[in-house]
């Protein structure tokens, strides 16, 4: 059985190592997207017309361009345009953060605007200070709306980081191909390797999806 090759030597560890490459990229991206997304969301709500227009345009670009195209632009294009020879992982963090910031920012904007105005007014009528209103009334409500959506976006980011395979980053699919190459005499090796990779991604993403669904239901 081809599945045995996964447990020969350090093959399974190598596969996990490959998975970690994309997961690490995803984690960095998610972290940066949260920070920049907050700024982005606030900019979208600002009264400055130029700021909101730029944000809108930024958001449309990431909505319309496949992430793979953006990866190509940064990885191959920036070298030509600006002479920056970025490696695959750096390019990936730039692109995914560019994308994640806009999406996260839009979620944050949505969460902030979802709170009805009278919530602020009735809190003010109780004599709370502005800080207290934000701390105890507005932010908790916004978070309840935001958190499930942000978790869903995070699983999307994790899934999308698989694309770094296409810009020569040695991640789990690439490692899988190497393993298959070594065991070319084992005909069903490819089946098991790709099946296990499929399963690994599922096992990583599924808990996040469940958590998002749980929070959504609890806070609905």
């Amino acid at each position: 059985m081809g599945i045995n090759i996964l447990f020969k030597g350090i093959n399974f560890q190598r596969l996990m190592g490959g998975l970690w490459v994309t997961l690490r990229l995803a984690l960095i991206t998610i972290g940066l997207s949260c920070v920049f997304g907050l700024l982005f969301g606030m900019l979208m709500l600002s009264k400055r017309k130029t700021a909101t227009v730029i944000c809108r345009l930024w958001l449309e670009i990431v909505r319309f361009m496949p992430q793979l195209v953006l990866l190509y632009i940064v990885y191959f294009g920036f070298a030509r345009l600006f002479g920056w020879d970025l490696d695959g992982e750096t390019s990936a963090v730039i692109v995914f953060t560019f994308w994640g910031t806009a999406e996260m920012g839009d979620l944050i904007r949505g969460a902030l605007t979802s709170i009805p105005r009278h919530q602020f007014e009735s809190a003010a009528a109780l004599g709370l200070t502005k800080v207290q209103i934000y701390m105890h009334v507005l932010i908790p409500q916004a978070l309840r709306r935001l958190l499930p959506q942000a978790i869903n976006l995070s699983t999307r980011i994790i899934k999308t980081t698989a694309l770094v395979k296409m810009i020569n980053v040695t991640e789990v699919l690439k490692v899988g191909q190497q393993i298959i190459g070594q065991f070319y005499r084992q005909p069903d090796a490819a089946f098991w390797v790709y099946f296990v990779i499929f399963l690994l991604y599922f096992l990583v993403c599924w808990p996040f999806s469940l958590l998002a669904k749980y929070l959504e239901k609890r806070w609905a």
Partner: peptide, 8 residues
Amino acid sequence: RNTPLLVQ
């Protein structure tokens, strides 16, 4: 929903 298209 929880696996990338590339892997699929």
